[in-house]
């Protein structure tokens, strides 16, 4: 075993912080869902979900320390998802 106690501290601190942030965000999301905001509910919930995903990706999946290539690849899926959403909705929203 060559991990010192200092290693142990840094090992736990970051993930624990991220974890508490995630739990807090989840709680906010849950609470906000019961407020009568109309269409605002889904917007708030999704924004929180995006923030949570970002926290998870950056701090727990360690994209923070990833190479540029890995960051590009990680965002590729999202870009292509945008192609899919924008072009599919271009049909549905203009059907009339």
């Amino acid at each position: 075993m060559n991990g010192s106690s200092g290693d142990h501290e840094t090992l736990w601190r970051g993930p624990l912080l991220a974890w508490s942030a995630l739990l807090a965000l989840a709680a906010i999301s849950l609470g906000s869902a019961y407020l009568p905001l109309g269409a605002g509910n889904v917007a708030v919930n999704l924004v929180i979900a995006v923030v949570m995903a970002a926290v998870l990706a950056i701090f727990l999946m360690d994209l923070r320390n990833g190479t540029t290539l890995v960051r590009i690849v990680a965002s590729t899926g999202l870009f292509w998802m945008i192609f899919m959403f924008v072009l599919t909705f271009s049909d549905y929203l203009s059907r009339g």
Partner: peptide, 16 residues
Amino acid sequence: MVWGHHMFVAGQSPLA
């Protein structure tokens, strides 16, 4: 970004 050209008569909107 071009898949919709398979659907010109499928009931897709004219704008799409």
